[in-house]
Design a protein around this nucleic acid. Sequence first.
DNA 1: TCATATTGCATTGTGTACAATATGATTGTA
DNA 2: TACAATCATATTGTACACAATGCAATATGA
Lengths: 147, 147
Amino acid sequence: MDGNSKDMLKLDNQLCFALYACSKEIISLYKPYLNSHGLTYTQYITLLVLWEQDSLSVSELGNKLLLDSGTLTPLLKKLEKSQLIERVRDKDDERIVKVYLTEKGRMLQESFLELPQKMFCNSGIKLEEAINLKTMLNRLLGNIRKL
Amino acid sequence: MDGNSKDMLKLDNQLCFALYACSKEIISLYKPYLNSHGLTYTQYITLLVLWEQDSLSVSELGNKLLLDSGTLTPLLKKLEKSQLIERVRDKDDERIVKVYLTEKGRMLQESFLELPQKMFCNSGIKLEEAINLKTMLNRLLGNIRKL
DNA sequence: TCATATTGCATTGTGTACAATATGATTGTA
DNA sequence: TACAATCATATTGTACACAATGCAATATGA
């Protein structure tokens, strides 16, 4: 991040591009494994949330995942088609669609228990560094979201 | 990054999700400004590269941007339609398409000279932190790409 | 010259983001 | 209680990003 405006326009000097590239490349590391289970990355993180806490509405999922309902609706329909979840419109408030794991969806967690560890080893960075990086990212994320 | 496998499957413990979310959110900060110039983020970083070095082939651009030609071709056609670049098939090797900035494309750089600074201020993090973060991301990116 | 591999771009299909819309719930007011 | 206005939620449509495949041009070697 040196001197003048033109330098800051260089691709290599842009924090945003580093984030953009890193995110894409890491996700592409996940892909082979996820695809072998018929999942995209976004579907995977949706399941992550449901494995933590079942029975969430579309918007609650969206809040946790930072995803729009317009993104989630087709995604959830696919997960439902694969019989990993069920979408049930709430009786009391018919605007709300609640999402439940099926037995098959719950069982699937077993296949992924070792994945984070495996991915971390692939990344070739130290644990301390990873924690440090994640902390900084979360702080940055917090700042951005307040705007 | 604590204890057991199930904990590591929690969304909040995933470095990858922090990257994914941060990248998306920061890009969404760029969007209003980019859109007002009729550009997407990907088109913007493509111009960043061309402003640094004009007259690159599609694959050379792809290498710098970590983008596939399948992503670049339609993108470049749009930039050509907006008369910001020209795509010229190489005389000596007709497989190669070279990309040149037009005068209009070169001039456009002026409009973006202050953008990185503005974005950085919005992010609410310290310069030292940003440098630190970018360094770590680039190292991580380097590790990943060797796989 | 023929066969094979490589390289580079284009095309197609899938996934995601965003804006516009529809519909159900809530609140305030008479 | 009834009604209008507002708000909340999900869906649909459109455009973009990306991956996979196919095709054309070139290079290499038999």
